[in-house]
Design a protein around this nucleic acid. Structure first.
Lengths: 108, 108
DNA sequence: CTAATCCATAACTTACAGGTTATGGGTTAA
DNA sequence: TTAACCCATAACCTGTAAGTTATGGATTAG
């Protein structure tokens, strides 16, 4: 099953700094690059790059207002990740008719 | 919010080859290293290394039987990932009834 | 007993991603 | 107009992680 979208999503969220930025935008809503930089622990260009990657993954949207750029989280973009997880659990359940599997799950 | 567990989970699943191995184990159940290697597209040592990482993340379990080692997926280990996703969506929803945020959204 | 097999580890190479500083375009403030 | 500010891009550096081949221990087969 080839899903470059999921690949990109996982890769994007795989970096702790980047995921922290996304998480912050989810928690606190829209923020400017400067505000994000202030508590990101890395330089402003680094933040801009991370935001670029998040943007490409569809995880954030941007809004230019004067010389400021505001970024906002788009949690809907996490859907493929949820789908994938459900699918993995689904395969698991589908094999539950295997007695060994069932037993192993019960004593866990 | 410091969660090294989530960090490790995301990082582990961030690699396409590794996630493909995990996905295969979810789909097809327990497999030996040799079987996995046959369709992994990388060498046997590479597969062993990936399995080691998956093991450390708790995403798989191993069972030695003679000279073979069987690996099995543990989809329960995906739970923190599901929790995190729900939390992100939760923050989003929680802010939806914040009037200020709503207004800020409306005046674009 | 010998040979073949399975897998893990070691040792090494290398590509790339994430970090930095430097810079400049566009915008607001004075 | 000039100066200060915000941010994106360019150019560069570097650590790490994913890949490779080589090897050996343990186990099974002949």
């Amino acid at each position: 099953m080839v899903t470059p979208l999921q690949d990109f999503l996982f890769k994007t969220l795989g970096d702790p700094t980047r995921r922290a930025i996304f998480e912050r935008l989810c928690r606190q809503g829209e923020q400017t690059v400067g505000t994000i930089t202030a508590s990101a622990g890395v330089s402003q260009p680094a933040v801009s790059k991370h935001l670029g990657v998040l943007l490409q993954a569809g995880l954030v949207s941007d809004r230019r207002h004067g010389r400021e750029t505001h970024y906002r989280a788009r949690p809907e973009a996490l859907a493929p990740l949820v789908d994938w997880t459900k699918q993995m659990a689904g395969f698991w359940d589908a094999r539950l008719d295997d007695l060994e599997d069932l037993l192993r799950r019960m004593d866990q």
